[in-house]
Amino acid sequence: MKYAGKKLVSLLMTLLFVSFLVFWAFAVIPGDPALAQLGTNATPERLEALREEMGLNVPFLQRYMRWLLHFCKGDLGQSYSYHIPVSDMILEKLPISLCMTGMAFVMVLLISIPLGILSAKHRGGKLDTVICAGNQVLMSVPPFFSGILITLLFGMVLHWFTPGGFVSMQQNPAGFFGYLLFPAFAIALPKAAMAVKTLRSALVTELGKDYPRTAYSRGNTRNQVLYGHVLKNAMIPVLTFFGMALSDILTGSIIIEQVFGIPGIGRILLTSIMNRDYPVVEAIIMLMAITVIVVNFLVDLLYRKLDPQIHVET
């Protein structure tokens, strides 16, 4: 419990720091939200009036403190460009992005764990060679490109889905998940390839240690040694990778949403940055930071479950 409390304090500090950094970044980079909103209609008087109205003339620190106070109360503010509460905007799009991230992550797990084990089990064999070669190729293809290839193959040639034909969950749940399958796959591929590689090398390292030999000397079969002894130890480094992959998939979905025409969080983020719609940007980035931090926290907890040695060190 002491550990969790200590961790929580450091999590909050991190979030505070991230929020300040984002706020500060927007204060120093060129671009004026009032000007972005008025566009060509801007006259100095109207600009000044709007800036006053939006509270942009207040000193930076004061603005930050005000935002922070509201944020802590759960009030994310109003979008500058759409004039609706930010929370409504995000809540509408969030499920789509979360679904896609979740699907992609499950795919990474489903692909990488069996393949990694298979590859390590037959290390040096033909199957291993094929898996490793495939890995090498998949790792080097960025998701947006594999996304285009997938659209081409499954959309244009095989007609398994209609490119650009996104339907919302309310309209057609099956169609919604069916459509997301393909972008999720595009995101999952390179991560899965890396995970296979990480798991394989972790397993091979563990198999080369002394304790599997002890296990064999007691009459264990190959599979018993692999699943009963080695796998748990090999999962420790792989867990770190999965944690990073989950954060990566979440943040990396922005581009894929563009490629597949999905109206998710990534899309709002892009348009909001272009419109200098700070409240929206700030809220989304905080959301991502919270997710990344929470994921890392969970990985830490799982670590303690897997590796008994961590207990003594903390």
């Binding site: 240690k209 304790y211 007691r218 009459g219 079969t221 002894h229 130890n233 590796d307």
Partner: peptide
Amino acid sequence: IREVQGKEIGMIFQEPMTSLNPSR
């Protein structure tokens, strides 16, 4: 052979530090 291992023949090794599974 597996029936013999651990039952008829037991074995201990040089490195006690690394010959036990750290996570069991």
